[in-house]
Structures are given as structure tokens and as C-alpha cells.
Design a protein around this nucleic acid. Structure first.
Length: 420
RNA sequence: GGAGGGGUAGCGUAAUUGGUAACGCAGUGGUCUUGAAAACCACCGCCUUCGGGCUUGCAGGUUCGAGUCCUGUCCCCUCCGCCA
């Protein structure tokens, strides 16, 4: 959520920044509602002051045994007027609130102009793209041949866009989770095992709601939502709290993630790339505002180094305005080389949300030496998406006979085995 | 799921027939001190257009006025049932 005062004071700048995200927002509506709200609120508060004073007087005069029927009747009218005004304020406030919840975050100045992924700015590359002297296979074929991934049975058990892993596949999955969690812990992130089902307030706090409700799985009779990412429970750790630091506060969690993938019909239908359920190790940080720009660089390195240790080729891009998400102020995508796609595929997204989520979720801190509270900055990033990492390992490490070499760094998690 | 009890500042506790949220501890600043402790003083929920407004889990209702009365709801505890 944007600071209403920013819109009030400088709507042109806000509109220009949102235009960079290729979003058009009618800020006149916001300003009109805001002005109306403030006018009515002022009026209500004056009447309340009057009523509070009158009530106090009733109390005093009653103690002295005086007659107060006239004063009470008079004050009743003030109360009725307050009720009237509050009734008129309610729909205005609701409309303003609803509107503000749908306005995206503004991008930081360094975000490149552009409207699609084609306009993203490449930052750097790592590793050599493998060249195979034999016909390389896509990971879904390798996975089925090696009997470590079973798409058909997952379809029977659940439906399309589900998969299951067996034997060395399941072990590789678990090895990656452990490796990634250990890696994050070594870098100072506290491990968390959060709930997978969250309430509506949590989804609103991180920005999934109200705009992207159709992407979430809703557990209807109980009114819970399956988390689309561990970012949701982790960022909501401190919802409605004033945190005392010391900053940065860094957390990591392995969770399954659930996405309806509405609007992705027909895309990435084969393999592990786009599933309704996938495993992911997530990083979340809470920072003082002045620390968030350095923090995202550090966090990017935290994620990139996972791929470097796995010796998987990747490139890092800074997303252009038009390709960025709703709540992000700055986003780096890390894309791993996927031979079956013949291109780099997103495996991690690292973002600075600035104070956007903190305002929605009301997460504040007290800057040292200052009495007033301020909103923290939140950041999040995947380190990494496990299914896509498995796909990348299978494809990049495949041998002519269909077997797959296990990356060195995972061997200790897999009884020192060398091959799958 | 059922029955009972409870939710007041970080923690622990108050508040007359409904009368406008109090106290202790902890914390912060200061005085004193070589320094510290102790003692003493002040501050010690949120917002504010600085007039004031809001705040007893949350949302409503009754009332001039609600921690207190009423309705709904969430959470916690105890017991029972069920359950990995």
C-alpha cells in the first residue's frame, strides 16, 4: 500500500512512477475520497469532543444532585449527529481503502523502462552453457526413464500440473532442501517451519489479495488459503507488531507452495517447471529503510551462490517496469540454463518490497533516538525453487546413457553417490 | 466437535449501582556518583491538522456516558470426545 500522504502531496510523481510499471491509476478518485474523508472525520471529532465534555458534565452535576435531563436530551442529539456522519463516512472510507489496496508499489529509480521480459536488463552470467555430444533429453524424459519422477500417477492421484518423485528423485528433492536450508542458515537466516494454510489478513498483508485472489487455492469450509510462497507466513510473522530489531532480521523456510496458475493454461505443461504444488526454500528480511537497497544485493548473492555451488549456469536480470510484480519496488530474477528450453528459465526472484507490505501488514519499528514509529522495509527471494532446480540438474548433468551425475556439493547428502 | 473458565500497556495485577482505564515490575531519559548500584524526578499504548480523537482480543448494539450490560465472532486455558 502506498502512503496516502504521498498521493496527496505529489500525485504527478506517483502517477509517473506507476506509468513505468505500465499501470494507470486514477489518482483523482483517491484524492477526492481522501479529502471527503478528512472533512467528515474532522467534523466527527469535533462533535465527539463536544459529547465527551457534555458527558463529563453530566457526571459532575449528577454527583452534586442537580437535574441533568435537559443536558442529556441535548447531548443525545449530538450523538445522533455523530452516528449520521459516521454512516456517511463508512462507504467513503471503504471505497478509499479498497482502492488503495489495488494500487501497486512504485518502482525504484534504477528500474529500467520496458513493458515485457524482453526489456529486462541482464546484469551478469555465470558458468558455461553445456554442449552435448549426444541428443540431450528434457528432464521429464530423464525423470521417467530413471523412474524418479512419475507424472502419470500424479495425474491419476490429483490431476494435471502435479508430479511425484520416488526413490532417488525424492531423496534428491530432500537433499536439495537440506542443502539450501543449511546454506541460508550459514548466511545468518533463522530457519522457520511455518503454517501452509493462512488466513485472509495474511494474504492481504503481503499483497496477494485482493487483486490476485484467483491465483490462490481456497480451503472453503474453513476459509483458509494455501500459501503460494513462504513469503506469506514469513513476512506476516510481525504483522501488527512494532519490532525492536536488531536489524536485519533474516528468516528462511522450506515449504511447499501452491498456485492455481490461472491464466497459464497451455504454458509449460510438461515437466516440473509449472506445477500447482512445488517445494521452495525462501528468504525473507526485515530492514530499516536505509538498509534495504544494500540488503537486496546481499540477498541476490545469497541466492546466486546456491546455483554457483551446484555449478549450474545462470544469468541474472533486473526486471523492467512492465515485467515487475504488484508489490515490488525492485526485482532481480535469476534464470538457470534449461537445455530443453534452449534458454534461461526463472529459478529465483529476489525483490525489495520497500514499505509496501509493511504498510498493509502494519509492521513497524522505532528508529533509534526517535519516538515515532516507522514502517520497516521487507525483502524476499527464493533460494531456490526446488522443482526447477531438479529439472536443471537432470538436464545439465545428464550423461549419454541417460544417467545423471550428482553435483559435488550434494554428495554428502546422498551417501556420497555419484550418479543417478 | 461438546462443556466450563478467561482475554485490560512488554510482564503481573486493579477499577463501587455503568461515571470516562489505575498500580507494580521491566524499559528510556535525567539528578546524584570516580564509575556502578541504590535513591529521587520525568517519560513509559496509537493517531493528530496540536483543537483533539482513539485504545480493555475483534465487530456491532443499548446509553448522555460501556473494561463493566446485550449480540455475534476470534484466540487462549481446563475437562470430555475424536485424531497423526
Amino acid at each position: 500500500m502506498l502512503d496516502i500522504r504521498r498521493i496527496r502531496q505529489d500525485p504527478e510523481t506517483v502517477a509517473r512512477l506507476l506509468a513505468k510499471k505500465h499501470v494507470e491509476v486514477d489518482l483523482d478518485v483517491v484524492q477526492r475520497l481522501d479529502a471527503k474523508k478528512r472533512e467528515i472525520t474532522l467534523h466527527i471529532e469535533r462533535l465527539k469532543a463536544q459529547r465527551n465534555q457534555a458527558s463529563e458534565e453530566v457526571s459532575q452535576r449528577k454527583k452534586r444532585g442537580e437535574d441533568v435531563t435537559g443536558l442529556i436530551a441535548e447531548t443525545r442529539l449530538v450523538g445522533e449527529k455523530i452516528k449520521e456522519l459516521e454512516a456517511s463516512l463508512e462507504p467513503i472510507d471503504q471505497e478509499l481503502q479498497d482502492f488503495l489496496y489495488t494500487v501497486p508499489n512504485t518502482p525504484l529509480p534504477q528500474v529500467p523502462e520496458g513493458e515485457s521480459a524482453d526489456d529486462n536488463q541482464e546484469m551478469h552470467r555465470f558458468g558455461e552453457v553445456p554442449r552435448f555430444s549426444f541428443p540431450a533429453k528434457p528432464h521429464w524424459e530423464l525423470g521417467e526413464m530413471l523412474e524418479i519422477i512419475d507424472f502419470e500417477r500424479a495425474r491419476k492421484i490429483s490431476g494435471s500440473r502435479f508430479s511425484l518423485m520416488r526413490g532417488m528423485g525424492a531423496r534428491l528433492n530432500r537433499a536439495l532442501i537440506n542443502f539450501m536450508l543449511d546454506h541460508a542458515r550459514e548466511r545468518g537466516y533463522q530457519e522457520v517451519a511455518p503454517p501452509y494454510l493462512v488466513n485472509e489478513a495474511s494474504m492481504l498483508g503481503t499483497g496477494q489479495f485482493p487483486k490476485f485472489a484467483e491465483d490462490a487455492f481456497h480451503v472453503v469450509p474453513h476459509d483458509y488459503y494455501l500459501i503460494p510462497t513462504a513469503e506469506v507466513p514469513l513476512t506476516n510473522l510481525f504483522r501488527d507488531e512494532i519490532i525492536t530489531g536488531p536489524f536485519p532480521l533474516k528468516f528462511t523456510a522450506y515449504t511447499a507452495s501452491f498456485r492455481a496458475e490461472a491464466g497459464a493454461a497451455g504454458r509449460d505443461t510438461r515437466g516440473l517447471i509449472r506445477q500447482h504444488q512445488f517445494d521452495k526454500v525462501e528468504l525473507v528480511r526485515f530492514e530499516e529503510p536505509q538498509g534495504s537497497e544494500a540488503a537486496i544485493e546481499e540477498m541476490l548473492r545469497d541466492a546466486e551462490s546456491v546455483l554457483e555451488e551446484l555449478e549450474l549456469p545462470y544469468r541474472t536480470v533486473m526486471l523492467c517496469g512492465g515485467d515487475m510484480g504488484f508489490g515490488q519496488a525492485l526485482t532481480y530474477d535469476i534464470e538457470v540454463w534449461m537445455p530443453s528450453y534452449g534458454k534461461y528459465v526463472e529459478i529465483s526472484s529476489v525483490s525489495n518490497m520497500t514499505d509496501f507490505q509493511a504498510r498493509r501488514a502494519n509492521i513497524r519499528y522505532r528508529p533509534s533516538g526517535v519516538k515515532k514509529t516507522e514502517f520497516v522495509h521487507t525483502l524476499n527471494g527464493s533460494a531456490l525453487a526446488v522443482g526447477r532446480t531438479i529439472a536443471a540438474i537432470l538436464e545439465n548433468y545428464q550423461r549419454p546413457n541417460g544417467h545423471v551425475k550428482i553435483p559435488d556439493v550434494l554428495r554428502s547428502y546422498l551417501d556420497d553417490k555419484e550418479l543417478i
